[in-house]
C-alpha cells in the first residue's frame, strides 16, 4: 500500500496526540522504575547489618569522592535543563552543545563510580564479600547502569537532532529523556542520603 503522502493535518494531529500519550506513559514508566529503586533501597536497608564480618560502609565510603560524583550529576542535570531551554527556543546548535556537555558530565560520573567500584573490589570488598556489599553494588550499580543508558540515549538524540532538527517527535523525545535524566538525579540524592551519609556518619 502506498503511503508516501499522508495528509499533513491528519498526520500532525496524530503526532501531537501520540506525543502526549508518550509523555503520560513515560511518567508511569518512571514510577515503575521508581518501584524497582524503592525495592532495592529497602533491600539495602535490610541488608546493612549483613556485613558477615566484612567491611562496613564506614570502612569503605569516601564522602569526598561521593561529593564529586554528586556534583557531576547535579551539574549535568542543570546542563540538560539548559538543553531543554535551548530546545524550546529552537536553537539547535545550543541544544547539541549542552547535550554534549551533559553527556560528558555523565561519562565523568560513570568513570568515578567505576573507580570507586574497582577500588573496593581491589581491597577485597567486592559484591560477593557479604550481603551488605551485594546490596550496595546492586543498588548503586543499577543507578550507574541507568546513567549509562541515559548517556547512550543522549548520543542517539545528538544524532537525531543533527540529522532531522528539532521536529515535534524529536523534541518530545528530548523532553522525555530530560525527565529520565532528572529522575536519576533524584534517585542519586536518595542514594547519597540513604547509602553514603548514614554509612559514614
Amino acid at each position: 500500500m502506498s503511503d508516501a503522502a499522508l495528509p499533513a493535518g491528519l498526520e500532525a494531529e496524530a503526532t501531537a496526540e501520540r506525543i502526549e500519550d508518550k509523555a503520560f506513559g513515560f511518567w508511569i514508566y518512571l514510577m515503575t522504575d521508581g518501584v524497582i529503586f524503592a525495592l532495592l533501597f529497602a533491600t539495602y536497608v535490610v541488608m546493612t547489618v549483613g556485613t558477615a564480618g566484612g567491611p562496613t560502609g564506614a570502612d569503605l565510603f569516601n564522602l569526598t569522592h561521593t561529593f564529586g560524583e554528586t556534583m557531576l550529576l547535579l551539574v549535568s542535570s542543570a546542563t540538560f535543563g539548559m538543553a531543554s531551554v535551548a530546545a524550546r527556543e529552537g536553537d539547535r546548535r545550543a541544544v547539541l552543545l549542552w547535550l554534549v556537555v551533559t553527556a560528558a558530565l555523565g561519562v565523568g560520573f560513570v568513570i568515578m563510580e567505576g573507580l570507586e567500584f574497582s577500588g573496593m573490589i581491589a581491597q577485597g570488598a567486592g559484591p560477593d564479600r557479604s550481603g551488605f556489599l551485594s546490596a550496595f553494588f546492586t543498588l548503586v550499580g543499577t543507578h550507574g547502569a541507568h546513567v549509562s543508558v541515559g548517556i547512550l540515549c543522549i548520543l542517539v538524540m545528538l544524532a537525531q537532532i543533527a540529522a532531522r532538527g528539532l521536529t515535534p517527535p524529536v523534541a518530545s523525545r528530548l523532553f522525555r529523556l530530560g525527565l529520565f535524566w532528572h529522575f536519576l538525579d533524584i534517585v542519586w540524592i536518595g542514594i547519597f542520603s540513604i547509602v553514603y551519609l548514614p554509612g559514614v556518619l
Binding site: V49, G50, T51, A52, G53, G131
Partner: peptide, 12 residues
C-alpha cells in the same frame, strides 16, 4: 554452633 556457623556477625 549450628546456628552460628551460618553467620558470625549477623545476629538475625
Amino acid at each position: 554452633h549450628i546456628i552460628a556457623r551460618y553467620d558470625g556477625a549477623m545476629a538475625m
